[in-house]
């Protein structure tokens, strides 16, 4: 039977047609688009068949959780280690599970190191105590306070207001992992071990470099690179490499894009530069609240499309509010930790 004699059930059973609908590639796309343009009378039938194919799914809809994904994987790997261990020696069960867990950790780290072209697999395979007891330090800044942290190996972290960072008292021999909530600027000391920043399921992987990570209040995460090279992985397996002067913005809805950035605007905060660049009122409010640790209230209405641009270096709250008043005509009142801005 020829395609132009096809009825809907014929399209629905044609492998080549289904392939075009389910996983289009250059070949099948070229063929079917051309064929359709030559047979416009078949368009409706083809669309209906494609719609049915695309709509069909399992009624029972349950996804494998990240935890189960990881647990199952670890169980599988653990199993072939425990097999060999059992053959070698009859040790107590808790010992060999512990032992094999360590080997897994070691082999995975070795994978990472190889990828980076480094060869610092020195003493990591002896003492089991290494991975078992890690104590962590957590540094947290409230709104209105910024801080600078120097880690034991020399990395410097500028932690912005309203942000938190967690890191082990001592890094392992194979990698340096920190967990960030909020915003921080990193000047990573190059020492052969990868430096990994984890934030909100995004993983930023670096070696000797300086960059800014910002998890905004809307849930977006952006990484701006000043020097060196960083690699970002998300939970879906996406991976992006950044070059200096590039910024990656990962939206809360999963989309992401690369862009250039103005260093003063993005990382000026660490040198006490408060920058507004065509910011909406909501953004201005957030920045002031975070910077000065105050609460901003609005009386009246903001004209649609209103934005504010201005730059301040190490200024008092009053001076910033004066500056905004000057260009926008807003009035303000400071009452302890509460700022009231009125638009009339």
């Amino acid at each position: 039977m020829k395609y132009n004699e096809y009825k809907i059930q014929h399209f629905l059973s044609d492998e080549f047609f289904i392939q075009w609908v389910v996983s289009p590639d250059d070949d099948n796309k070229h063929f079917w688009e051309k064929w359709l343009s030559e047979h416009p009378e078949k368009r409706k039938t083809v669309q209906s068949a494609a719609a049915i194919i695309k709509a069909i799914r399992y009624k029972k809809n349950l996804e494998l959780s990240d935890k189960t994904y990881i647990d199952t994987f670890e169980n599988i790997i653990k199993h072939d280690h425990s097999e060999t261990d059992r053959l070698q020696k009859k040790s107590s069960s808790s010992w060999y599970i512990f032992f094999s867990m360590r080997k897994i950790a070691a082999s995975i780290f070795i994978g990472l190191i190889c990828w980076l072209g480094y060869s610092v697999i020195s003493k990591s395979t002896e003492e089991p105590a290494l991975t078992s007891e890690i104590s962590y330090t957590t540094k947290k800044n409230p709104f209105g306070k910024k801080s600078m942290i120097t880690l034991s190996e020399g990395t410097v972290i500028y932690l912005n207001a309203g942000s938190e960072i967690k890191y082990p008292r001592e890094f392992s021999d194979s990698s340096r992992n920190v967990t960030l909530t909020g915003e921080a600027f990193f000047e990573v000391k190059k020492d052969g071990r990868p430096f990994i920043v984890k934030t909100d399921n995004k993983i930023i992987h670096v070696l000797g470099t300086s960059f800014n990570v910002n998890q905004s209040y809307t849930g977006d995460v952006s990484v701006a690179l000043v020097s060196g090279k960083v690699r970002i992985n998300d939970e879906l397996g996406n991976q992006v490499l950044l070059d200096p002067k590039e910024m990656l913005v990962m939206k809360a809805d999963g989309g992401f894009y690369k862009t250039e950035f103005d260093p003063l605007e993005i990382i000026g905060w660490k040198d006490k530069h408060l920058i507004f660049n065509r910011n909406t009122f909501e953004e201005v409010k957030m920045k002031i609240e975070k910077w000065y640790g105050v609460e901003v209230k609005l009386k009246g209405k903001i004209k649609p499309g209103w934005t504010y641009t201005g730059a301040y270096e190490n200024e008092t709250l009053e001076n910033v509010l004066e500056g905004i008043k000057l260009t926008s005509g807003f009035n303000y009142k400071i009452n302890n930790k509460t700022i009231t801005i009125s638009t009339y």
């Binding site: 950790a105 995975i108 990472l112 967990t179 984890k198 992987h205 992985n233 397996g237 991976q239």
Partner: peptide
Amino acid sequence: MTNSTKNQNNQTVILIEHAEAVKQ
């Protein structure tokens, strides 16, 4: 707490590894 953080780091590493493998 220490334990859960350790697990998280392990998970992170496994996810990175798997992303690498996909790329290759």
